[in-house]
Computed example of a mutant assay.
Amino acid sequence: MPRTRIAALGHHQPDHVLTNDDLAGMVDTSDEWIRQRTGIATRRIARDESVADLAAAAAGKALAAAGLDPADIGLVTVATCSAQDRCPSIAAQVAGRLGVPAAVAFDLNNGCAGFTTALATADHALRAGAARHALVIGAEKMSDVTDWTDRSTCVLLGDGAGAAVVSAGEGGGDGRDGIGPVVWGSDPTRGDAVRLRGAWQPRFAQEGQTVFRWATTELVPLIERTCQEAGTTPRELGGIVTHQANLRIIEALVRRLGVEDTVVARDVVDSGNTSAASVPLAFSKLVERRAIEPGAPVLLFSFGGGLSWAGQVVACP
């Protein structure tokens, strides 16, 4: 069975920066209040860009970085929960814009866990021989589903996209050599803790304390299992990229895992919570800065609405 690997990454964010002070002029909040509770300082807001625009921009950069032609791509999938377009899919729109011919193209909605779920889905498809190269994209325009009068949620969310080119090769593989086994699942008994319900226009809502307690108490064993499945341990990782929901959650996971000296993504400070885009966006930035050694094992782990989770260890491109 062929191994798979992330060949290249790309990301895109809107130009407009919304600061905490800007939000303080819109709702009853302050920079200090937001930083203490979330760690967020700024987020990007798309004014004239759609989810498809964000996704295509990130995917085009990843494709160029991989040195592939659009005709090489056999699968395109976009993880998103904020797209207004139901059909054609965002993935089909991205394929059309990039000139990708005849690829299978579909969107995947698993909330904030969407990208790592989509990455595992593409990994399985490539290992089965359904394609040689895939574009896996996480793209969100959360500003479209934000209640700008609710200070508990409007301070959290941002827009952006990240993309990965996934390629099949020869030989075996694990998180040190390619894409390791996925650990994924959900707890639907707490599905209402993060919500995006109703006819369009829906609004994002969540039970913040429920999500915080769940993430900081129940995710560590799942992360440790993800590493075990890949034949490594948290302390042996070259980098950790979790869903960028809240800096307090990230720091709590770092402490419980004992990985204070590991490169850990903290892009939430600058980008806010970009849902399914957060993991590929943060990972792409770390790779662009060469913060992680090429080939080093990197944990990708996302979680959110469902309550769902998905993670795998991958070799850094």
Rank of each mutant, 00 (worst) to 15 (best):
E229H: 12
S302T: 09
K285T: 08
G238W: 00
G25L: 13
D177V: 10
T274D: 06
N110S: 12
S284G: 11
A56I: 02
A168C: 11
A193T: 13
V145Q: 03
I90T: 08
T262V: 09
A24F: 09
C112A: 14
N109V: 13
A315F: 07
D187H: 12
A282R: 02
G180T: 06
V220G: 04
L300C: 11
S143V: 03
I6V: 11
D150E: 14
K61W: 04
A199I: 15
A277R: 03
T217W: 09
V298E: 07
G272D: 03
E32N: 08
R3F: 06
Q206D: 12
G175S: 09
D22C: 08
L18C: 05
R190M: 15
P280M: 05
C112R: 07
L126Q: 03
L253F: 11
S186R: 10
M142C: 14
R176T: 04
A199T: 15
A315R: 03
T217S: 14
D85L: 13
R5H: 05
T226L: 11
P297K: 02
S308D: 08
G25M: 11
V298A: 10
A118D: 07
L126E: 02
V259L: 07
V194T: 07
T216W: 02
A128R: 12
E218H: 15
A65T: 02
V220W: 03
N246G: 06
L157R: 04
S275R: 02
V100A: 00
G311H: 03
D85C: 13
S308I: 10
H133M: 02
S152G: 14
V194S: 04
T189W: 05
A103K: 02
S302M: 10
I73R: 04
A134Y: 01
Q209N: 11
W200N: 14
A8D: 01
R248M: 06
D261M: 12
